[in-house]
């Protein structure tokens, strides 16, 4: 007989079941709408292929950019005491809570060709235009993905006992060596989780991308934008592409399940 404390009340079970149904129903609905007989043709269509190619390429680049900027940021937030730390953390979280379209507008204000704080300078001095370009897609995606990475890494860095880094220092390991040989292996679970979250967020980005980089097929049209565009003109294609995106995400989750997502507790 199980103890009272280990019994889950019925209303909790019902709530949990409703939660599962709520999450599963849209996926089932999506799968039901996929035209399986024409799926391959839809997926290999030029515009779909372009959208997938841009999405995968931009989301990986955005994740790398987020990692390059996010790791030092997470380090400082986790390990340093400095004036304005709370402000910096709020700033990091902002893209997470900001409506993505507003994020896109803000990016235009910073990197827009004509009125952007930096965009105008980049255009005048180097002829670099970020808006309506693949770089624009990458920047928009990195902007919204960065908080997920920083949060995961900051949490990971906080949970690492510094005694290992201290031991490495006493044994002669300098800063970079300590980081590469000791901190990074200890940080690996958080790093992988953060990278996957950031990548998934970048892959699904819509609002900031369409506002900042536009929706130009073959140039800035990512898979989510293509799905949105096709929903009216070619619903079969929209569902086919949606299915591919779901399959990619499920594939990643399944691939990581044992190592990083709940595997340890099962």
């Amino acid at each position: 007989m199980s103890s009272v404390s280990s019994q889950t009340p019925r209303f909790v079970r019902i709530g949990a079941l409703l939660g599962v149904v709520f999450l599963a129903l849209p996926i089932v609905g999506l799968l039901k709408r996929v035209a399986w007989s024409t799926l391959w043709g839809q997926v290999t269509d030029v515009s779909t292929r372009d959208a997938l190619r841009i999405s995968l390429y931009a989301s990986v680049c955005a994740t790398v950019l987020a990692l390059v900027l996010g790791l030092p940021l997470a380090w400082c937030l986790a390990r340093m005491q400095f004036a304005g730390r709370r402000f910096v953390r709020a700033l990091v979280l902002l893209p997470m809570v900001l409506p993505p379209v507003v994020g896109g507008v803000a990016l235009l204000g910073a990197y827009g060709k004509t009125n952007g704080l930096l965009g105008g300078v980049l255009d005048r001095l180097f002829g670099i235009q970020l808006t309506y370009s693949l770089w624009g897609v990458i920047i928009a995606e990195a902007f919204v993905a960065l908080p997920f990475l920083v949060l995961a890494l900051e949490g990971g860095l906080r949970s690492i006992d510094t005694k290992y880094e201290e031991a490495a220092a006493v044994m002669g390991a300098k800063d970079l060596t300590r980081f590469m040989r000791v901190t990074l292996p200890l940080l690996k679970p958080s790093l992988v989780a953060g990278v996957m979250l950031a990548w998934a967020r970048a892959l699904g980005e819509f609002g900031a991308t369409i506002t900042f980089a536009g929706n130009i097929q073959g140039r800035t049209q990512t898979a989510p934008l293509a799905v949105y565009t096709m929903l009216e003109s070619n619903p079969e294609g929209a569902y086919a592409l949606s299915f591919v995106l779901v399959a990619i995400c499920v594939g990643v989750l399944v691939g990581l399940r044992d190592r990083w997502i709940g595997g340890a507790s099962e």
Binding site: K163, Y164, E166, A167, A168, A169, V170, M171, G172, A173, K174, V182, P185, L186
Partner: peptide, 21 residues
């Protein structure tokens, strides 16, 4: 002088072995 430059060997009370090695 930073610890990495002191050339000291130390046994830590809790050993502090790197768990992933």
């Amino acid at each position: 002088v930073q610890p990495e430059l002191r050339n000291i060997g130390m046994v830590f009370q809790d050993h502090s072995l790197f768990p992933f090695m």
